[in-house]
Design a protein around this nucleic acid. Structure first.
Lengths: 109, 109
DNA sequence: CCTAACCTAGACGATGTCGAAGAAATAAAG
DNA sequence: CTTTATTTCTTCGACATCGTCTAGGTTAGG
């Protein structure tokens, strides 16, 4: 793994958010996934900015979606995790896992 | 949880490293724990600097240890995780866990 | 045109990370 | 026995990247 491959804490959440959102992964659903699952209150802009930076690093890629027939339903920017992004997030998760191994007592499992 | 309580990615590793090191938690063992468990090659200075910042935030605390009778065995600064630090690291781990829930296929479990 | 849904820009403090330098201890020289 | 080496551990200063917000667009339908 080349250096610079380590994801920041929020970056990990965003990549995972994209995975959770699946087919329909654009800003809002990713943001919602994070809010709902972590209970953390972040701004939408934080998510967008992070998606941007992840795309620069080639960890996610995006394409234009079609407009939907509803009020304000403009075309969305849809995201997908690249193989590199998958590797990176796997590494992050695994690092955490390894570091927590054997600490169940102290961490309250 | 008061805002600003979110640990950065490396901060989490360091807190966990302190827990892993147990009684003898000073710079080098913490650093070694991270290296060994995550396979990541970070500098000792990175660990020290992070311990410093964590202490400023009250997530770990430190005390002076005794010198040991060996070449270069100067007094060490021994660290311990505070209750607040424990809460913070639990929150981080749990956030990751929640975000990865259901993605076993894609993450290769 | 108003308003709803979505995205971009710019800024700035917080984190991540290193190379280099300092301090304290024992060992080895002379 | 005091001077200089060598080892172990810690601190400093710097700089790039990440985290995060407020404010300001853009594009649909009502």
């Amino acid at each position: 793994m080349p250096p610079g491959s380590a994801l920041g804490e929020f970056e990990s959440l965003v990549v995972l958010g994209v995975l959770q959102a699946g087919e329909d992964a654009y800003g809002v659903p990713v943001w919602r996934a994070i809010q709902e699952r972590t209970g953390r209150d972040v701004s939408l802009a934080a998510v967008y900015k992070t998606l941007d930076r992840l795309e620069s690093k080639g960890l996610v890629r995006s394409r234009q979606g079609e407009p939907t027939a509803e009020r304000g339903g403009r075309a969305k920017r849809l995201y997908a995790v690249t193989p590199g992004g998958l590797d990176a997030v796997r590494a992050s998760v695994q690092a955490l896992t390894q570091m927590t191994a054997g600490l169940d007592e102290v961490l309250g499992t």
